[in-house]
C-alpha cells in the first residue's frame, strides 16, 4: 500500500485509458464504461503548473486583458515575452507563469505602474506537484511552485504569479524588497517546501523548530501518525489508510 502522495503506480495502471498531457477522466474514478450517470464523460484539465500544459488564448476577458496590456507597456514586449511563459485563465482567475529571472522586474512594475497598482501582496506560498498525475515531473516541468497572489486596491483586481523550480535548484528571487509583507510568507515557504528565496533578509524557519530536518509540506515528506485502537479495531494512521483517487 503506498501513501496517497504516491500516485505514480495508479497512474501507470490507468495509462491505457488516460490520454497523456495531464488529463484525467470520470467523476467517480471509473475508467471505461460502468458509469451511467453522465459524469463519466467529464474531461478535466489538470491543475496549473506541473501538468497543465496549455495556455489561454487572448482575449482573456474581464480586466485580465487590461492588466496584461498595461504590464506589457510597463516592462516592454521583449521582457514580457521572456518573463511570462504561459498565461492561464481559469474560474475567473488569471495566472501568469513567470520565469524566475524576471520575477522582480515584473512585481516592481506591477506595484509601481499607474495602470497596474498591485499594492498588496496577499499571499506567497508553495505547492508541490510531485505525483499529481499526468506526465511525470521532468526538468522542464518542475514540481515546486511558488505562488504569489497580488491585489490591486486601487482597481480592485487580483492576479496570481507562479514560479516553478526544481528540487535540485530551488532558488527564487525574494520579493521582500518590493513587498515587505512577503517576509514571513517566504520564510514559511522555505520552512515547508525548501524553496530558497535569494535576497531575503533572514530566511530562517518560522513554523517548525530551527533544528528541524526536512520540509514537511513536500509531497515526499510523510504525514506521520500512529495506529489507534478503537473498539477492538486498529485504525491505521491517515496516510496509510485506503484512499481513492
Amino acid at each position: 500500500m503506498t501513501g496517497p502522495g504516491d500516485r505514480s503506480g495508479e497512474d501507470a495502471g490507468q495509462g491505457a485509458t488516460a490520454p497523456s498531457g495531464g488529463f484525467r477522466k470520470g467523476a467517480f474514478g471509473v475508467s471505461g464504461s460502468g458509469d451511467t450517470s453522465g459524469f463519466g464523460g467529464l474531461v478535466r484539465v489538470e491543475p496549473g503548473g506541473a501538468v497543465a500544459l496549455h495556455s489561454t488564448d487572448r482575449p482573456y476577458g474581464g480586466y485580465f486583458d487590461e492588466v496584461t496590456d498595461a504590464l506589457i507597456e510597463a516592462v516592454g514586449q521583449a521582457t514580457y515575452d521572456a518573463a511570462v511563459q504561459r498565461v492561464l485563465v481559469d474560474r475567473g482567475e488569471i495566472t501568469y507563469f513567470v520565469a524566475r529571472e524576471h520575477l522582480l522586474t515584473l512585481v516592481q512594475a506591477l506595484r509601481d505602474d499607474e495602470a497596474l497598482r498591485f499594492e498588496l501582496c496577499s499571499s506567497v506560498s508553495g505547492v508541490d506537484y510531485e505525483g499529481s498525475g499526468g506526465p511525470a515531473t521532468t526538468p522542464d516541468r518542475p514540481r515546486l511552485h511558488v505562488v504569489h497572489h497580488l491585489t490591486s486596491m486601487t482597481y480592485r483586481r487580483r492576479i496570481r504569479l507562479e514560479v516553478a523550480v526544481t528540487v535540485e535548484d530551488p532558488h527564487v528571487p525574494s520579493v521582500t524588497s518590493v513587498y515587505p509583507t512577503a517576509d514571513w510568507h517566504e520564510r514559511e515557504t522555505w520552512d515547508m517546501f525548501g524553496v530558497v528565496f535569494d535576497g531575503h533578509p533572514a530566511l530562517t524557519r518560522i513554523l517548525m523548530p530551527d533544528d528541524w530536518d526536512g520540509h514537511p509540506q513536500r509531497k515526499d515528506y510523510p504525514l506521520g501518525g500512529v495506529p489507534v485502537e478503537y473498539h477492538d479495531a486498529t485504525i491505521p494512521p491517515p496516510d496509510t489508510r485506503r484512499s481513492y483517487r
Binding site: R24, G29, R44, A52, E93, T95, S122, S123, V127, T151
Partner: peptide
C-alpha cells in the same frame, strides 16, 4: 471529486 485547478478565495 473536485475538478482540477486552483482558486484563491478571500
Amino acid at each position: 471529486r473536485v475538478p482540477a485547478g486552483q482558486v484563491y478565495v478571500p
